[in-house]
Design a protein around this nucleic acid. Structure first.
Lengths: 225, 225
DNA sequence: ATCCCTTTGTGAACCGATGCACAAAGTAGG
DNA sequence: CCTACTTTGTGCATCGGTTCACAAAGGGAT
């Protein structure tokens, strides 16, 4: 390290990474509306965060703003996209073509920028061969072969809970290291594999917790003692 | 407050609340398999967390374990359910009956314990009147009336992004204070309203970020200096 | 060129969450 | 009753993330 400044420290905080997509979406909206330049204040508002946090987040990618002016929308879109790895197009496979799998395949924002659904799998022979969102559903037996052939690097698990771990083991064995899991189970994977979990019932339960507090409020105090 | 101990401090950390549903699921599985008692070590493994964290989390609800023995599964299920507000049955409404809305309505784990879908709404006259998961789809015009009549307290937004804020304003005006938002927009709501957001494309983007790092690995180092 | 205004980038204090490590509290067995 | 063993509950150090507040850096006007 020669340069005194060390902008791209190669270590972006996890919390920051989780917000970058938010900024990116807000910026895309602005670009479409023809806005060329934006201040941290305005962008923060659009993304629903505090402006100091936004600036610190962006500072982790480098110094891409101009003091007294703000950030160039186009340029920032490019920088964030690059950082997130969206300048390439990722091949995603969906395993499990139930209601949720279908919804995901058809979900526009899913395929949006940087991703495309490259394959869909199911175990049910009645479903295999169907065309969903312009794509043929393959039998789960072909999992490994198709993943390799089409260069799939991200797998979305939308199987029933009971099948999730087995499918997971297979895709991991096939070399996949990024999994988005919708099945309500805790997957066990090697440390080198990234699993992100989306769990609808957990979100509901968290809402119920707060709702209960609001409803009961300070009055409740029924069985507290 | 007479008792010297103050177990249920009325202030459970957010991070703990987010994990309680995880413990609850693991405990349900154990109860079904006839396990009567579990140690923090085993429960933590089943839930995919560290045992010290689990114990600290549970200690926020009170002292429900027995030293040298562990936790009684049934009893702990009850305590966590009560804390999360799952001893009552929450009426949930789904707005937007596209692919995702349908998937949610049919999703088993969604309706599981403590929740039931009480109403579904859409703006499209072709969809209104359809029966999905045994429930009639109502027109969005009836939103306020139906919400009040059926005592809906949690609303799931599965509308297109463009419609989300307007629908949100209406459900808030109708008195709803808990919203689960699947639309890719930042909703603006009064501070008293709880919004949780589930965003599929954000999750994918986070995976892409890490995948890119792995792929490039320590070799990449192209434009770093 | 100088002054004033705007906005970034960041040092430092603060806050909540995590994980270690151990005393306290219980069981079991002789 | 006393000793050996197990497992909880928690004090404490640590860490990552958030927020404040301000110096540094740029633009524009005179």
């Amino acid at each position: 390290m020669k340069s005194p400044s060390h902008p791209r420290d190669r270590g972006i905080p996890e919390a920051t990474v989780a917000r970058l997509p938010l900024y990116l979406r807000a910026l895309h909206g602005m670009a479409e509306r023809g806005i060329a330049t934006v201040s941290s204040e305005d962008l923060a508002t659009a993304a629903g965060v505090n402006s100091a946090k936004l600036r610190k987040d962006l500072s982790h990618l480098g110094s891409y703003g101009t003091r007294g002016v703000g950030y160039d929308v186009e340029y920032l879109v490019y920088q964030i996209s690059r950082e997130l790895g969206l300048t390439q197009d990722w091949a995603v496979a969906i395993v499990g073509v139930g209601n949720l799998g279908r919804a995901l395949a058809n979900y526009g924002g899913f395929v949006s920028r940087g991703f495309h659904v490259a394959a869909m799998f199911d175990a049910d022979p009645d479903v295999v061969g169907d065309t969903i969102a312009g794509l043929n559903v393959e039998h789960i037996d072909a999992l490994e072969a198709v993943i390799k052939r089409r260069g799939v690097s991200i797998v979305v698990l939308a199987t029933p809970a009971a099948a999730a771990q087995e499918v997971c083991d297979r895709v991991v064995a096939a070399g996949v290291t990024s999994i988005l899991n919708f099945a309500p189970v805790v997957l066990s994977v090697p440390g080198s594999v990234d699993v992100r979990k989306v769990d609808l019932s957990i979100e509901l339960q968290i809402l119920a917790f707060h709702e209960q507090r609001k409803a009961g409020g300070p009055l409740m105090a029924v069985d507290t003692q």
